[in-house]
């Protein structure tokens, strides 16, 4: 058994405050029951599960949160949000993490790198929603 000492200073608290501000949710409402991850249809594709990501946000571990793919695999289907027993809009937390990285001037999808064939082939509903979720 090994322990990891976590820093919990101003930087961590600022991160939590920002996520709470963007999402409009109280991160400490979560008591880690895991229902969000249990019902998430994308859990198998995430490197850490939704409730684990929330735990990391509660601890203000910005780097670990942003490194995870969890919020980029989330497709905002909102299953977690309608099921959360604490009535947290879990999907809004995922969106807040996405927005946090996008607002730091980081584009997840670079539109100019998508091939012309793909742009012609894909329906506009997919393109618009993708760009709204994955570009700043």
């Amino acid at each position: 058994m090994s322990y990891e000492y976590l820093k919990f200073g101003k930087e961590e608290k600022d991160f939590i405050a920002k996520i709470e501000e963007i999402s409009g949710q109280n991160i400490y409402s979560c008591y880690q029951c895991g229902k969000c991850s249990a019902g998430c249809v994308f859990s198998d594709k995430m490197d850490i599960t939704v409730n684990q990501l929330i735990h990391l946000i509660q601890l203000g571990q910005k780097e670990k949160v942003l490194k995870a793919n969890t919020h980029w695999v989330c497709s905002s289907c909102l299953t977690c949000s309608v099921r959360c027993p604490r009535e947290i809009d879990v999907a809004a937390l995922m969106e807040a993490v996405r927005e946090y990285s996008l607002r730091e001037d980081y584009e997840k999808v670079i539109i100019s790198e998508i091939s012309k064939e793909a742009l012609d082939k894909l329906p506009n509903i997919a393109l618009v929603s993708n760009f709204r979720k994955k570009t700043g």
Binding site: F42, V73, S75, S76, V109, L127, S129, N130
Partner: peptide, 20 residues
């Protein structure tokens, strides 16, 4: 019946959509 199809991931993460 409401198992998300992967939605807009079709643009940049097609593997998600195909598995769903």
């Amino acid at each position: 019946f409401k198992f998300c199809c992967g939605s807009y991931h079709i643009v940049d993460q097609e593997y998600i959509v195909s598995s769903q």
